[in-house]
Design a protein around this nucleic acid. Structure first.
Lengths: 194, 194, 194, 194
DNA sequence: TGCTAACCGAGACGGTACGTCCTGTCTTCCC
DNA sequence: GGGAAGACAGGACGTACCGTCTCGGTTAGCA
């Protein structure tokens, strides 16, 4: 089926490239990340990178997919209290962002998005996709438990929560105390009563 | 008192630079925008740009401020119906984004944000600031009219609405029909009842 | 004695490599000749070339030796008339050079010479060696016939004739009519009388 | 007439590039000479080289023209004795070649010639041109003095002498004692009697 | 007939250099 | 002294080859 002629791709090399990419992205940001620097740190020829990825954005994309970059943890388990669950999840999101380098990383990935349409979708799928699905799942469970009205648009609610986080990060606006909870409160109340 | 010796700054030159910046930004995006291209299209020396602006991001920043870039219109007037007003405003936001070049522009500005901390704040202030203030003003009027409960966090609500728009744009996700209204419905309902 | 186990060298492959080398050398010149292009045209792995030759120059060297490259014909037979014989031989040399690709080939081989000392000698031996030996042989016959004075330096005379051709080719200077004959006349007269 | 707008070309930079080129060419030879190395040693951006020269060969060409490379001295003055004059001139040529680096330089320039037609002519004009003209001038003086027969082809004689030198260098053949004198003897005798 | 060695195609690999593009600074002349 | 033009050092881009190195698959002689 597949063409297996020639020397096979060296997986250790692929890993080294993705690791180097993750490190440099966190250290310097997307703008100041160069393919040459990745090659240098990974101990790899530049051509080896271009052989497998079309662009800087594509490498970053796969580095994220490979878990080379720190992403916020999965949402906390369902304790039955929708509001409490979402508040603690939202707090975690903002706490993760407070760590040095993490806001830079999000901004870097946002910048990477502006390059190519194909990579963008894949990148957002990888980064916000899991969070989003867990979030919607939790909301759906709340709906099943009667905590959320049946006709509520759960996707819109998820957009509102994730978007609010993204907005604060990109605007470099400070996070006032109580902000995560206030966000959750507005959305959860809106889901409860139409 | 002030030293006015020497030739004063040529305002026509400044305008040409900002116009060229706006055009190129919309055409090519922030990544592929170069100072040399701006200078070339504006018929201006490169040094003239660097004399007045510290960086590419700063020029983009001022181009936005000078209205060289198309931004969504101001929110519609207060008709007394908070939900209806916000729905139509939100529809306008998404309609503006649907026009060709506008999503590219927002992505370009998001990318510009990742460069420099100082410019970022100014840029977001210019782009989302007016929308945000109008939005919060409208929400505050709703609170005064008793449509919004007194202790609601209007900033969080504004973040949720603006962030949701930003999120869809950056993720290049399609806008399903009814999405703008659903967003407004969740947030407004959340503001009404705590 | 020698270990002849294992698959023997494929002579068809060797021939394909030398043929491809000859073609590419004539088409593109030595500078723009690449081992990868040779391998590609010969339908051969790069390693197969490096297994048998140390360098690009070595392959070119053997391609010449194997007759893959067109070289000027052997000198005409001895008719007894030294001057006439050399004039017609010299005319042949310049006529061969006039054909398209042949001057490029000589320049390519001169360039190849600058690479490696070992290859250079072998290459010159192959290319000018036979011509040179025939030439000196013809001059020696002339000396035996009393047409050339006994103490004449036949090597110097051969250098002068071959070098003059080489000089014109490398300098890309046009060949004026009567030039080959004039060259022969000077040298032959010089050999006749000291 | 000429466009004098903009910053004028920095002559110190031009000199630094040509000096660096001459040094590196002598040290490493033409094949191992890189534009990046020239830029590095000259303390210059690569673009500054490509702004003024189309190719490596063109830079080498101008380095020669600018006297950055050691070339054999001009021919000795006319003492009236044609044979003696040419013998001492020819000895000088071969002595110059015997110095380390000089043969490499000639081979390098021969290799540079194979790249581009335009540069080749200019390069040969610069390198062998002056020698050739002095040589022909001296021969013409000999003809005027009756030492050379009137109908002798002086160009052919010059080709023979210069070519013989070039031939020995490119072939990396050793110079036997008495070779320069033997060369001159053949050619001068040939010019004397037809 | 199966073992072992060497060949062969393909092509990945670490590198070097290419020639282009752009950045931010500078220098000159013109107004 | 502002401004157009454009040279400059520096540095990253993406491409082309280099010479080396595995792969799977052949093709011989020897056992």
């Amino acid at each position: 089926m597949s063409d297996k002629r020639g020397r096979p791709r060296d997986q250790a090399v692929r890993a080294a490239i993705l690791t180097a990419t993750g490190e440099l992205l966190t250290e310097r940001g997307y703008e100041r990340l160069s393919v040459e620097a990745i090659a240098g740190r990974a101990g790899v020829g530049k051509q080896t990178i271009y052989r497998w990825w079309r662009s800087k954005a594509a490498v970053v994309c796969e580095a994220v997919a490979a878990g080379q970059l720190p992403l916020p943890s999965a949402p906390p388990p369902d304790t039955g209290e929708l509001g409490a669950d979402l508040r603690s999840w939202m707090r975690e999101q903002f706490e993760w962002l407070a760590a040095p380098g993490h806001t830079a990383l999000v901004r870097a990935l946002a910048a990477a998005s502006s390059d190519d349409a194909g990579d963008t979708e894949r990148l957002h799928e990888l980064i916000t996709g899991p969070s989003r699905e867990h979030l919607i799942g939790r909301l759906r469970a709340g709906a099943a438990a009667g905590r959320v009205r049946a006709d509520a648009d759960l996707e819109a609610a998820a957009d509102a929560l994730l978007g609010a986080v993204l907005y604060r990060v990109l605007a470099r606006a400070p996070i006032p105390p109580g902000h995560p909870e206030a966000l959750v409160d507005v959305v959860v109340a809106g889901l409860r009563s139409g």
